[in-house]
């Protein structure tokens, strides 16, 4: 009950500030454009293309709707009003998580609907099952990215710290993830560039990136499940996504529960 009251408020915040419409328009525009290109070019697999766009767009949108969701009210003092009501700190974190997952899910929905409409309108071949898969897997991925953002937001005292950590995470996933093992091997190699094929732990590390895991799950379900090492299976990718969800929101819960607000 308390959880739903809080989740509803955190869902309605972007509606009331009207930022929701901007986000929905962005998703509709991007996926509409993609559907148009797919409709006029039969070589393009729009479902697979949707996954590639989601992998880039969703972390950005999910983090921007979550990094400030707890640190912001904590810094401004609006949390001091909220916590005078019968909510526990845990409920504040989880209610925020649920509400903001709902917000970002609306974006995913808008994107997939726009892609479907545009594909049909511009004469492409429509695979509804594939789009259903994109919708389901992307929603799970959105939930993971919101959990990362809310976890960060609950762990730090100020908006500044939250925005730096969230932006840093985004750069880490997109730019630095695969550089880190190279850097590690460089140091281990006595500050000389390593030669030869990468060892297995580097390959495993690469699959631990939540964005890589999302693409792995989506592509495995859309096309053929890959065969090979355990860390290339779809189950490994699902466990990676689940672990990101549980660990980040868990850290947020614990840190927020211990903090002086």
């Amino acid at each position: 009950m308390s959880l739903l009251t809080l989740a509803k408020r955190r869902l309605l915040d972007p509606v009331r500030t009207r930022s929701l419409w901007v986000m929905l328009a962005l998703f509709a525009l991007v996926f509409g454009l993609m559907g148009y290109l797919g409709g006029s070019n039969s070589m393009l697999d729009t479902a697979t293309q949707s996954v590639a766009i989601m992998a880039f767009l969703l972390p950005l949108v999910a983090l921007s709707y979550s990094y400030d969701a707890i640190a912001g009210p904590r810094e401004s003092g609006s949390l001091r009003v909220l916590l005078s009501y019968p909510f526990t700190r845990r409920e504040v974190v989880l209610g925020t998580l649920v509400g903001r997952i709902a917000v970002v899910t609306l974006g995913v929905l808008a994107g997939v609907l726009a892609a479907i409409v545009a594909t049909v309108a511009f004469g492409g071949s429509l695979d509804l099952v594939a789009f259903g898969i994109v919708l389901a897997v992307s929603t799970l991925f959105a939930a993971v990215m919101v959990a990362i953002g809310v976890g960060i937001s609950a762990s730090v005292p100020t908006t500044n710290a939250a925005v730096l950590t969230a932006f840093g995470s985004y750069l880490l996933y997109f730019a630095f993830w695969d550089l880190l093992p190279t850097l590690g091997r460089y140091v281990l190699n006595g500050f000389a560039f390593p030669t030869g094929p990468p060892p297995e732990w580097v390959l495993i590390w690469s699959q631990l990136n939540p964005i890589t895991a999302y693409r792995a799950v989506a592509e495995a379900v859309l096309a053929q499940p890959p065969t090979g090492a355990f860390y290339h299976t779809v189950w490994f990718a699902i466990v990676v996504l689940g672990a990101w969800f549980v660990l980040t929101i868990g850290i947020g819960l614990v840190r927020f529960d211990r903090a002086d607000l």
């Binding site: 009210p73 003092g77 609006s78 001091r80 009003v81 916590l83 005078s84 009501y85 019968p86 909510f87």
Partner: peptide, 14 residues
């Protein structure tokens, strides 16, 4: 919190 009413200091109204 169910049984109290609070006017805190240093609050902010959304």
């Amino acid at each position: 919190r169910q049984r109290i009413g609070v006017l805190p200091d240093a609050y902010h109204l959304d």
